[in-house]
Simulated assay, not measured.
Amino acid sequence: MQSLYRTTIDEELRLIWLPEMSQAALNVLVRQIHIDLQELGESVYCDDTPKKPNGMRSALYTAQRILRERGETIAERLGSSRASDLADALTVLADRHLGLQNLPWGGLRAFPTGRFYAGGVNVYDEIVSSWRGKNEAPIKEVA
């Protein structure tokens, strides 16, 4: 589980508005997009463009772009799509209220960008490789 309080969270996640899909379903969808992109030799990072913009590559990048653009809606609603801004707001709310579980979360989702840092190094490609069964060494647990 990624903490919203990680120093690299804004590079790892973007907030998006996607009420038609659960967070779990979004995670499964993005995981499969990243597996497919890596198998095609493409970058999994959501801001990149395909090396060879054709066929499945274009479809996968388009899917990521559409999801990423849903951040514009959340920015309109909350004033930001940065995960760190949400963390700051939650800290203030937690100090003022006993529970955050009753807040109207609606369609707020965390969109994985294709980066995850451990010890200052982006290890996301290794994580995707492990999902594909291509990594001999297990991924170390990251705090």
Rank of each mutant, 00 (worst) to 15 (best):
T49L: 15
L103F: 12
M21N: 09
L100S: 10
V92E: 15
G41V: 02
R6E: 00
R57D: 06
G119T: 03
L103I: 02
N135I: 06
L90F: 01
D88R: 15
L67C: 12
K134I: 05
G107D: 10
R31L: 04
S3M: 09
I66Y: 12
D88V: 06
T91M: 11
K51A: 12
T49C: 11
K140L: 12
V28F: 01
K51F: 07
A87E: 04
L86Y: 03
I16P: 01
S129P: 05
G71V: 08
D85W: 04
I9Q: 13
R31C: 08
P112N: 07
T91L: 12
W17P: 08
K140N: 11
G71N: 07
V123D: 02
R132W: 05
Y5D: 15
E11V: 01
K52S: 13
R115D: 04
M1C: 10
E12F: 05
G133W: 01
M21T: 15
L86N: 10
K140T: 12
G79D: 05
L15T: 12
K51E: 11
L29F: 10
L108M: 05
L37Y: 11
P53M: 07
N27G: 04
L4Q: 00
D88S: 13
N102G: 10
V92M: 11
P112W: 08
D88W: 07
M21V: 15
Q64D: 03
W105L: 02
N27F: 07
L18F: 11
Q2F: 07
E126L: 07
L26D: 09
S84Y: 08
A118H: 04
P19S: 00
R31Q: 15
T7F: 09
A137R: 14
T62I: 00
N102C: 08
E69N: 14
S81N: 15
Y124R: 01
R65V: 02
Q23V: 07
A63I: 05
Q2L: 13
R82P: 01
A118Q: 14
N27S: 10
A63H: 10
E42P: 06
Q64G: 09
A83D: 11
G119V: 06
G79I: 05
I66H: 10
L67M: 12
E136M: 10
N135C: 06
D95T: 09
C46D: 14
P104Y: 04
D36I: 05
L78P: 04
E12N: 09
K134R: 14
L18R: 12
R115G: 03
D36S: 13
V92H: 14
L98C: 09
M21A: 11
L108C: 04
D47Q: 05
S22E: 01
V142A: 14
W17A: 10
E11G: 07
V44W: 06
P104V: 02
G120Q: 06
H97A: 07
A89W: 07
Y61M: 02
Y117S: 00
W105T: 01
R109N: 01
T91A: 13
V128I: 15
A137Q: 14
T113Y: 02
Y124P: 02
V128P: 07
P104T: 02
E11L: 09
Y45M: 03
R57L: 04
T49E: 15
R96D: 09
L40M: 09
T8M: 00
W17S: 14
A59W: 00
G107Q: 05
E126F: 00
D85H: 02
S58P: 00
R82C: 00
R132P: 05
R65A: 12
A143L: 09
V142S: 06
N122Y: 10
V30Y: 00
R65I: 01
M1D: 13
